[in-house]
């Protein structure tokens, strides 16, 4: 697709390209190369911090270990609050990975000057601004809560669908579809909209004016990561929750 109709060649940094992808062919499969490139940067940054911070774990934390412990504690309290004391340990790594991956993706998309790197087609940005990523994450959450419920309760898990009354059955079934749908589209829409707003503002007024939108974008990005992780934990918590008769 062509850049915006009134894109001036003077402002290559502010060009808008939406829906264009940098295709890689894997056999006869097509994948979005720019998503994987930026996600590798994100994962690399994450792993670098983690490896540096856990090299020498001490009883009295110093340096990056403090940051990691703060994150761990934050994620633990999130998981414990939503999943409950009994099962949260099994799911803490998953919730934590979702939170960290989404958070670093969102912030990376907003803070790293991707536009300086030119791809033959499409452009680099937050991996979470691609619908494939968000649907992948949301489907993982669906699988996770089904697995959590089935492994903890066996087939009694399906009692959840008829509680408190069998009238709930259709709603609960519909919920299984709306959960991943809302999770994925909420994240996708927020991050894409944030990138578009910043890009459009930067395209119209390249100085200062986009800054408030960028700050708002950082805020939204953090909130979205928190929302995604919290909801994922909540769904898992709902699946492993034991009714007390």
């Amino acid at each position: 697709m062509v850049p915006m109709p009134f894109a001036m060649p003077l402002l290559p940094l502010a060009e808008l390209e939406v829906g264009q992808h940098f295709y890689w062919n894997l056999g006869n499969l097509k994948i979005h190369g720019q998503v994987f490139l930026s996600s590798w940067v994100v994962i690399g940054a994450l792993l670098a911090v983690v490896v540096i911070g856990t090299r020498r774990l001490q009883r009295e934390p110093a340096g990056v270990q403090n940051l990691l412990e703060f994150l761990w504690d934050y994620i633990r309290s999130l998981a414990r609050e939503q999943i409950g004391e009994k099962a949260y340990r099994d799911w803490l790594p998953f919730i934590g990975t979702l939170f960290l991956f989404i958070f670093v993706s969102n912030w990376g998309g907003a803070l790293i000057p991707w536009k300086l790197i030119h791809l033959p087609s499409g452009e680099l940005g937050a991996p979470t601004a691609d619908i494939n990523t968000t649907i992948a994450l949301a489907l993982l959450v669906s699988l996770a809560y089904f697995y959590a419920g089935l492994s903890r309760k066996g087939f009694r898990y399906f009692e959840y669908y008829v509680e408190p009354t069998p009238i709930m059955l259709p709603f609960k079934i519909v919920e299984d579809f709306t959960k991943p749908l809302s999770l994925s589209f909420r994240l996708f829409g927020n991050i894409l909209a944030d990138e578009l707003v910043v890009a459009v503002l930067a395209f119209l007024v390249p100085l200062i004016v986009p800054l408030p939108a960028m700050f708002l974008g950082l805020f939204t990005s953090a909130i979205q990561a928190l929302i995604f992780a919290t909801l994922a934990a909540y769904y898992i918590g709902e699946a492993v929750h034991e009714e007390h008769h």
């Binding site: 983690v50 991996p127 619908i131 649907i135 993982l140």
Partner: peptide, 26 residues
């Protein structure tokens, strides 16, 4: 070709990548 809602093999590969990341981060 492409578009905002262009679903392809990125999806399962990304899911696999995130699962791997979960194990690595764990």
């Amino acid at each position: 070709e492409g578009g905002l809602f262009d679903l392809d093999a990125t999806l399962p590969l990304m899911a696999l990548q995130v699962v791997l990341l979960t194990f690595i981060l764990n």
